[in-house]
């Protein structure tokens, strides 16, 4: 596919409809797409620009079948995300996208699906969860394993509760550090893998989280018998363009922005255990 006459760096100003605080440092923006709606596939991201401040890659985390609203959940870590957190309903934000590869949702049809998320890794997986639940009959068992640092950092709490209460979905949540008011699992998310129920001979895994968490999760999944070509993960690197031009997101020969961010473990296993590539 060739996007002949598009200026790939030209951002499109869109109106913010709603801002929702998720956690003290995390918020969700609902953006009104221009006419026609915003179409994407789960796993893709946008470059979001704050007037005069800068532009950063953020995964799309809404329901792919609700094209009338574009949803992003963002954690404040630095200057651009900080400035973004100050935007209010009615303000304008610049959007370029959608860019990048997607979760293997077609390939996962008829199979069990294991979704593993760490911390702010849940938003990039949420469109995949929505898609699977929208087409629940097409998938086998669906398991979500979610880990946060502590109870206070659990994101999408209400939705997690809703999902957990479904009879057709298995949800396990853990926190790294327990506290008096937490009565659930304690331990890193990898400790949940052994207790998930799925048919490893025919399951697909998708994960997002810090790289170290993903490396250990892969090992657990391989131990359970899911082969590397059925394990998918979303990678993060510095990105200035999102379209394969600026060079920043290179990871050996991969451009994470256009060949990824979603890769199969098989594609990247030779790189995953090497430092500073």
């Amino acid at each position: 596919m060739k996007a002949e006459n598009i200026d790939p760096m030209l951002t499109k100003p869109l109106r913010i409809q709603r801002v929702q605080r998720e956690l003290p440092d995390t918020f969700t923006l609902e953006i009104l797409p221009s006419n026609g709606g915003f179409h994407f596939t789960p796993g893709q991201f946008n470059m979001l620009y704050v007037f005069g401040v800068g532009e950063v890659p953020i995964s799309i985390c809404g329901d792919p079948e609700k094209s009338k609203s574009l949803v992003h959940t963002i954690r404040i870590v630095g200057s651009v995300t900080q400035a973004m957190s100050r935007l209010k309903s009615g303000d304008t934000i610049g959007v370029r996208g959608p860019f990048g590869s997607s979760w293997p949702l077609a390939e996962a049809e008829g199979k069990d699906v294991v979704i593993v998320a760490g911390g702010i890794g849940l938003p990039p997986l949420r469109p995949a969860i929505y898609h699977i639940l929208n087409h629940r009959e097409k998938y086998g068992k669906v398991v979500l394993l979610y880990g946060a640092r502590n109870k206070e950092e659990i994101i999408f709490w209400k939705e997690l509760e809703q999902w957990r209460s479904r009879f057709d979905m298995e949800v396990h949540v853990t926190v790294d550090r327990g506290s008096g008011n937490w009565h659930g699992n304690v331990g890193v998310v990898t400790t949940l893998v052994p207790r998930a129920t799925f048919n490893s001979a025919d399951a697909i895994a998708m994960m997002v989280g810090p790289e170290i968490m993903m490396r250990f999760t892969v090992l657990e999944l391989l131990k359970r018998g899911i082969t590397g070509d059925r394990i998918y993960m979303s990678m993060e690197r510095n990105m200035k363009c999102g379209v394969g031009i600026c060079g920043h997101c290179q990871w050996s020969h991969h451009f994470i922005c256009k060949d990824g961010p979603v890769f199969s473990y098989e594609q990247i296993k030779v790189l995953l255990d090497k430092h500073e590539i």
Partner: peptide, 10 residues
């Protein structure tokens, strides 16, 4: 070499 970065000014 084609790498570029982007800077913002107001």
């Amino acid at each position: 070499c084609f790498c570029i970065t982007v800077e913002d000014y107001t």
